[in-house]
Design a protein around this nucleic acid. Sequence first.
DNA 1: GCAACTCTTGGTAGCGCTACCATAGCTGGA
DNA 2: TCCAGCTATGGTAGCGCTACCAAGAGTTGC
Lengths: 366, 366
Amino acid sequence: MGRRRATGRPTIADVAARAGVGAITVSRALRQPDKVSPALRKSIEEAVRELGYVPDLNARALASRRTDVVAVLVPSLTQNIFSDVLRGIYDGVEDSGLRIEITNTRYNNALEEAQLTTILRHQPAAVIVSGTEQTAVSRAMLERAGCPVVQIMDLTDDPIQKIIGFSHERAGREMTQHLIDAGYRRIGFLAGWMNLRSRQRFDGYRCALEEAGLYDPDLIGEVGNDEAVKTDDHLFSTAMMGHELMLAMLERRPDVDAIFCNNDVLALGALFACNARGVPVPDRVGIAGFNDFDYMEAAFPAMSSVRIHRWRCGYEAMMAVRDQLNGGEIGEPIVDLGFEIMKRASTDRRGELPAVRDRTILQTLS
Amino acid sequence: MGRRRATGRPTIADVAARAGVGAITVSRALRQPDKVSPALRKSIEEAVRELGYVPDLNARALASRRTDVVAVLVPSLTQNIFSDVLRGIYDGVEDSGLRIEITNTRYNNALEEAQLTTILRHQPAAVIVSGTEQTAVSRAMLERAGCPVVQIMDLTDDPIQKIIGFSHERAGREMTQHLIDAGYRRIGFLAGWMNLRSRQRFDGYRCALEEAGLYDPDLIGEVGNDEAVKTDDHLFSTAMMGHELMLAMLERRPDVDAIFCNNDVLALGALFACNARGVPVPDRVGIAGFNDFDYMEAAFPAMSSVRIHRWRCGYEAMMAVRDQLNGGEIGEPIVDLGFEIMKRASTDRRGELPAVRDRTILQTLS
DNA sequence: GCAACTCTTGGTAGCGCTACCATAGCTGGA
DNA sequence: TCCAGCTATGGTAGCGCTACCAAGAGTTGC
């Protein structure tokens, strides 16, 4: 027909002709099969198969003003945390016909806002964003987006629509409590560059120690707010940082008896630093991490950490999106996936200072 | 105009009206500014700014039969290897107006073929695929795709169009040679599930040892071809595997004096296994890894590894794509980024068996 | 038997953009 | 002066699909 070079691929009209129906019926049979009688549906499906018809998604998007792209915004691609989340998302998207478009916000809320502007103009089917740190403008855009929006990896009382995650503050608090219970008293904290969620973990650490009368700000080792660190997301936390922060801590505060690392990779570096200095772990210094990457269990001594459900976070978010796109309800707006305190050898200082009595004494003293 | 509900967003016609030109001229001014006179271009740009016009990419794609999506196929999202590659790709795409669509092929060539079928039907602007393991059908599709295709993370004499990577075989060979030069003689190999590239590294290991008359197949520790491992890409190599494989090796072949691990995460596990058994590294057993993740340098002892240019691989691939899309040449079809043998303490067995003389003796003997 | 209703199907008219061709204006050579 | 050969601009006709409305077929109620 047209003098314009077509792709040669069969179009919906070809299918319609072959099945002897109207184009719109083919369209319906593909998108809402229950609106088409079984007989026609069958012959349409046959025609589709015979012609090898695949719908043109760009045409569909143009006509319907809606794509099948789920936009996913993550603050970092490097850290295992988010690659596990992405794995969950990819596992969750299978056989849904949805596509995924990942955007790296680089822990930069202003950048995220700009990216979101573009993303929303493409009419995504849904948006999955990390955390609750969106700018007011971003939040307003997401509220008006007219599509499912799921926040992940954090919790808040006031989600945009739905949030799936866990409380970093509580996780930080419980791990710190575990260290206290294990008999440690001068419990330090090591951190790389801290984003909101890292800071929440720190707050948990601080609260737990303050309650126990053990908080000592001098026991905190943090990487300065180096510009290089802030712009390169893969430098936020490295084992080298953990190693050096631990060496510095051992030098400055040789009396430190435990270290809670904001991230497993820091904990790994800290362990190696102890090895290098001949500091016995867990007896002289206990070490705990956060994330529970697989090497924590394989370490010697096996390292305590907070297991968080990264994969599930991505997977459940994707499933929630799919449910909503299939006409389901939003369901529970706040889904707390929890976490687990993995108590392993690196914080198992047996036989010393029975925890409960000791805490009582300290509280009495303070 | 139309009785159909429009988005309310300004269209190219609005811009054209405001600038007092034809729609097609606006289109040209946006895509090929040099084809429009400076005067018109200026007033069009002004109109675009005033109206806040953003082109509708779906309409553009439908009309031009070409999108601005670069399809990226990676075999795994979990392993740091590919997250670094992706970081390079994302860093390379900035300010290009291109979008990225990542597909996880899960080291499954048949799945990749199916995914590619769908992907190519969406008329991507370019395709970036990992490795050279594509099926014949995949390869044929890519050859006929009519868009830039870049393979990454491997080398071959016969790229589809362009390949950017390095030789895994040579990397494996050189690291093994380093172990030989360092004075080790019973050099084992640990591997998780092996894909083609892992196997090439193994081939390099084997060749180097055979040349030196040192190859001993009994020194290979490999995880069985467990189905669970094959379907879950994050289980391909874990520190736990490295730990267990090393313990098994120490038990079976207590005379082993070095271990080349196919992956740093295995090396990490192996180091911990040595720590757990009190086996001194590097004096009793040397350990080398592959990838040079940041924790290798932070380890104690610092661990030798093969540094590969993951980030650059992604970045250069993206740049090559951009060049071609901007009308540039393909350039060199085979780009070898090389690798570096990072010699660190974990393979630094000083003072024993001077390497060169020893090798000479062995060659004489064999 | 007929109006009122539901269910299925189809025609028409875009969605917003760009390919293709046409046209107008300009340059330069014969 | 005229026409070929170029460049800058615009008109028209789609790209392949779906929203909207309409109409036909079947069903129910009085």
